[in-house]
């Protein structure tokens, strides 16, 4: 998948999908645990414990069978300016000297603060991808709805996921036809105008498509929400996992604050 969002692909209403060892648990449990895990990561103090949470997050990703290449690509997805910030922090935070470059004073405090930010961000993202990213998008929608997220917002989420691949395919077709006419992107006004035209055409086609979609959906009695065909069933093992995870997370957070 050229656009790389295949894990977000629409899986219809079928609940069967290989989610590794985590697949057996109730999606509601996974979503709430992802939030609790993220909260624990943010609250915990000290680089060692944050690093421990990164290891936990990575293990969860392995257990959820997130493909390794995808996982690494996503961890590396910290955007340029976040990385830049971590590099700059030693110079902007006062503290004991780490080294000095041409009169600039780098501090240990800043270095550790930067490392903490990187560890926090990585652990949260790993937890999110393992526990929530392993859910098919329609299950994610159903989970959010059953946890009280407004139904229209959930329907919007499911429609967006549904049309990602369709719109992506349309974009690739238009981009290919530009390439067939020998268009080469560069840093110039011609490129910006041409890509602008591409965007404008994409928008018009999307609006036309949405009109057909609306008609077809109303034909089938769509009233703003998706029917739920497979209600979730909370099992004893979900209660067990929830209790164990909450005790462990609370324990680690309390211990770090002592």
């Amino acid at each position: 998948m050229a656009l790389g969002h295949s894990s977000a692909a629409w899986n219809g209403q079928a609940l069967s999908r290989d989610g590794g060892q985590l697949a057996a648990f109730d999606p509601r449990l996974k979503l709430l645990l992802a939030a609790a895990f993220a909260l624990a990561v943010v609250l915990v103090e000290g680089s060692a414990l944050k690093a421990f949470f990164v290891v936990v997050g990575l293990s969860l990703c392995v257990a959820a069978r997130i493909p390794r290449a995808k996982l690494l690509r996503r961890i590396a997805a910290l955007e340029g300016f976040m990385v830049m910030m971590v590099i700059l922090l030693p110079f902007t935070v006062p503290g004991p000297t780490l080294f000095t470059v041409g009169g600039l004073h780098a501090s240990w405090t800043g270095l550790f603060q930067g490392i903490d930010i990187l560890l926090t961000a990585t652990a949260v993202v790993c937890g999110l991808m393992a526990l929530v990213g392993s859910l098919p998008a329609n299950v994610l929608g159903q989970t959010l709805a059953s946890l009280g997220v407004p139904e229209r917002l959930v329907a919007l989420l499911m429609l967006t996921v549904r049309y990602l691949d369709v719109v992506g395919g349309e974009y690739r077709r238009m981009r290919n036809s530009m390439r067939a006419r020998a268009f080469v992107a560069g840093t110039n006004r011609h490129t910006w105008r041409s890509v602008g035209h591409l965007v404008g055409m994409g928008l018009l086609r999307s609006i036309d498509r949405a009109e057909r979609v609306t008609d077809a959906m109303r034909c089938r009695g769509f009233d703003g929400r998706y029917p739920i065909l497979y209600p979730f069933r909370w099992q004893p093992r979900d209660s067990l996992a929830a209790t164990a995870a909450m005790l462990a997370l609370t324990g680690v957070v309390m211990w770090s604050m002592l």
């Binding site: 656009l3 790389g4 407004p150 229209r152 917002l153 329907a155 919007l156 499911m158 429609l159 967006t160 996921v161 549904r162 049309y163 990602l164 369709v166 719109v167 992506g168 974009y171 992107a185 560069g186 840093t187 490129t191 910006w192 890509v195 965007v199 994409g202 928008l203 999307s206 609006i207 498509r209 949405a210 009109e211 979609v213 609306t214 959906m217 109303r218 769509f222 009233d223 703003g224």
Partner: peptide, 30 residues
């Protein structure tokens, strides 16, 4: 959400997907 109903849900969803895809388009700069 107050302005969102079953009539404009699909168009909002498709446009949301369009902008998601657009955020994956890269334009060279130097």
């Amino acid at each position: 959400l107050r302005a969102l109903d079953h009539r404009n849900l699909p168009v909002t969803g498709v446009l949301s997907a369009t902008f998601f895809v657009a955020s994956l388009i890269h334009v060279p700069i130097g």
